[in-house]
């Protein structure tokens, strides 16, 4: 069955089909969840090789959990985000001994688009990423999930294994810190012209 064309098939149904041995489901789930797992890992770790490793490990765990998956118990995407988040936090702690090393923040990639506007957008995205990297890891995790991955507060609470109020508190503190960090770059990145 061409699952790639069936965007309305739920992740849970695809995972059940995967567990039943349908190769098309394996391909469809990889194409659907692989980029999401990688994207979150990349935003958290800012290192392509590490993000690939983390996303691969998370996907491997998903495939192995598939035969025993109980429908309706957990959302596949939430489960995957949780595994990716935890693996990222582990790596960040190992990398920095529990603290974010500001000197280790990578230089922004050389932007390819030639249009000035695109350059500015890229620069803004890079500036945001740099500011995110300076937040405490839990704040960063909550802000990324909420404002970049677009998840709801209850979903984030499940992923982070905390209450919804704690999520709200973390994102609020994270946004406040970001405002302070990005304030100085407003005119530099053209926000005063918007």
């Amino acid at each position: 069955m061409p699952y790639d064309a069936m965007s309305d098939t739920s992740d849970e149904s695809l995972l059940a089909a995967y567990a039943a041995g349908e190769p098309a489901a394996a391909r469809a789930l990889t194409l659907r969840l692989g980029p999401r797992a990688f994207g979150l890992a990349m935003r958290m770790l800012k290192d392509r090789a590490e993000a690939e490793d983390v996303a691969q490990e998370a996907l491997l765990r998903l495939w192995r959990a598939a035969p025993g998956w109980r429908m309706g118990e957990a959302k596949v995407s939430t489960w995957l985000y949780r595994v990716v988040s935890n693996l990222c936090i582990d790596r960040m702690r190992r990398r920095h001994g529990g603290h974010v090393d500001l000197d280790a923040v990578a230089e922004p990639e050389d932007p390819a688009p030639s249009v000035e506007r695109s350059l500015q957008e890229t620069a803004r995205g890079t500036a945001l990423q740099e500011a995110l990297d300076r937040l405490p890891e839990r704040q960063k995790q909550a802000v990324v999930l909420r404002h970049l991955e677009g998840l709801s507060n209850p979903e984030i609470a499940e992923i982070m294994d905390i209450g919804v109020r704690a999520v709200e508190s973390l994102t609020a503190r994270g946004r406040k810190a970001l405002e302070g960090l990005l304030q100085a770059r407003r005119s530099e990145l053209g926000y005063d012209d918007d």
Binding site: R27, P35, A51, Q56, T122, R124, G125
Partner: peptide, 22 residues
């Protein structure tokens, strides 16, 4: 701006992930 910049995996990595899934 951050949402517009979606980090995308390489095709090679995706191909490896598909092979692993199978």
């Amino acid at each position: 701006a951050g949402r517009a910049e979606v980090p995308a995996p390489s095709g090679d990595w995706l191909a490896r992930m598909e092979a692993m899934a199978l």
